[in-house]
Design a protein around this nucleic acid. Structure first.
Length: 429
RNA sequence: GGAGAGAUGGCUGAGUUGGUCUAAAGCGCACGAUUGGAAAUCGUGUUCACCCCUCAAAGGUGACAAGGGUUCGAAUCCCUUUCUCUCCGCCA
């Protein structure tokens, strides 16, 4: 979310930015919101003057009452009452205008970074760099659930009976591999990158949900607990960032470099390709996440560090990846710059998304009123987030890339301590 | 889940028969005086958002958990919600 003052002072820049994002239909919003802002400030000024007058008269009444001059006090009361209607009218107008302005501001996209490639949709995203050789083995790589089944590692049929489509039982070594990946990623972020490990709440109040996402997003993603004002989180970012909403953070604490673990629950309403026989897009998964809150001038450096962390992490598990930069049209409105880290799928012989790294600039901080108490005054920090690992989806890449010709799966060295020292998984039969 | 008590500035904490609350006092912090330097002492200052404004200053409005209500006027009275503490119950 942009600052209304910024829009007021730089309307042309904001419009240029909207064009870059191929959202021409939003252009009229700029002039509209500026007009509403003028009206709103006029109302605020007039209401302020009326309240000042009311406060002054009320004090007079207090004085008169104290002296026992009841009749005179009654006279002054009438004067105050005379203004009451106008003030009420203005207050209603203020509330209405503010709501309208906020709604529009939420729809005006953040100013994207100058380096973001321009394009209308995800087909124009740009592959920046590949890391590791995308190997195509000379044997057939089966569908990921089939690999898991060879180890007796997955039961989707029972999961469907118990919870419905989009859930899974992971069993035995596959379940253990799932946890190994999370534990390794956690330790990687703690020990190698110096991030602070956090386990946040996995549920939150409706007011927090409304703070961290828009209504359509909420409707499409969030599960609600019946009879309670509680929602299951769709990502730990919800409660990790929610922690700072309306807070003033001392500058000494920056940069906040956090790595959080949580299960994630998503309705995936309207999402195509909720696959019946896989764990690619599902209602429940687990994620190790990176969150950074930093000074504005440092956010781009952190952005580069964050996506490189993901690359390093995946390469250490022998998974080839590439960095795919989101073009302007594919960039969510809140984001300044964003890229996906995609893992190589030998079966499909293409890359698929496993991490998403975003620099939100100060948009999220402004929207959620997260502020930094600095030496030279207060300011809005920049916020960033990135996926470390999100299994079971990432297990698809892990299994496919480490599958051997004889049907066994090699366990990457870094994961072995978390697998009881095993070097490979052997099929049951 | 039941009963009771609470939520006030960076912290502690007064204020609850509505009216100089323009939120006491203390601590902390910043600056200054004093000192060879420091401690102690003394003095001054010390929330945020918004409006007004070329800038600054001055001024204005709002904010005492959140939201709503009563009133000429609410930290104070009423309602709803959230959270905290104590006791009981239940529980990994």
């Amino acid at each position: 979310m942009l600052d209304i003052k910024f829009v007021r002072e730089n309307p042309e820049l904001v419009k240029e930015n909207i064009k870059k994002k191929f959202q021409e239909y939003k252009l009229p919003l700029v002039d509209e919101v500026i007009a509403l802002d003028v009206e709103n400030r006029a109302a605020i000024t007039e209401a302020g003057a009326l309240r000042a007058e009311r406060n002054r008269l009320s004090k007079t009444i207090g004085g008169l009452m104290g002296q026992g001059k009841r009749d005179e006090a009654e006279e002054v009361k009438k004067q105050v009452s005379a203004q009451a209607d106008r003030l009420k009218e203005l207050e209603a107008k203020e509330a209405e205008l503010e709501e309208k302005i906020r709604t529009i501001m939420l729809n005006i996209p953040n100013i994207i970074d100058a380096s973001v490639p321009i394009g209308p949709d995800d087909s124009h995203n740009v592959e920046v760099q590949r890391f590791g050789e995308p190997v195509v083995p000379d044997f057939e790589v089966p569908y990921h659930t089939e690999i898991m089944e060879r180890f007796g590692g997955i039961d989707l049929d029972s999961a469907r009976r118990v919870a419905g489509n989009g859930f899974y039982y992971l069993i035995g070594d596959i379940a253990r591999l799932h946890e190994a990946v999370l534990a390794y990623a956690r330790d990687f972020m703690i020990d190698k990158k110096g991030f602070t490990y956090v386990i946040p709440p996995f549920m939150m109040h409706g007011s927090v949900v409304q703070g961290v996402m828009s209504f359509p997003e909420m409707d499409a993603m969030m599960y609600k607990i019946e009879g309670e004002d509680l929602y299951l989180i769709g990502t730990s970012e919800h409660t990790m960032i929610g922690r700072f909403v309306d807070q003033m953070v001392p500058e000494e604490q920056l940069p906040l470099t956090l790595t959080s673990y949580s299960p994630c629950f998503r309705k995936e309403k309207g999402a195509h390709g909720l696959e019946e026989r896989g764990v690619y897009r599902i209602h429940q998964f687990e994620k190790q996440e990176m969150i950074v809150v930093c000074k504005p001038e440092e956010s781009m450096a952190w952005y580069d560090k964050l996506w490189r962390n993901s690359v390093e992490l995946f390469r250490s598990m022998d998974i080839p990846v590439r960095q795919l930069e989101c073009c302007s049209g594919d960039l969510a409105d809140l984001k300044v710059k964003s890229c996906d880290i995609e893992a190589w799928s030998p079966r499909q012989q293409k890359y698929f998304e496993v991490c998403s790294c975003s620099n939100l600039g100060d948009a999220q901080a402004r929207r959620l009123k997260i502020r930094i108490k600095g030496e030279d005054g207060n300011y809005l920090p920049h916020t960033l987030n990135n996926t470390a690992v999100a299994p079971p989806r990432m297990l698809i890449a892990l299994l496919e890339n480490n599958l051997q010709a004889d049907g066994s799966v090699r366990i990457p060295e870094v994961l072995r301590p978390y697998m009881g020292g095993k070097t490979e998984l052997r099929p049951n039969n």
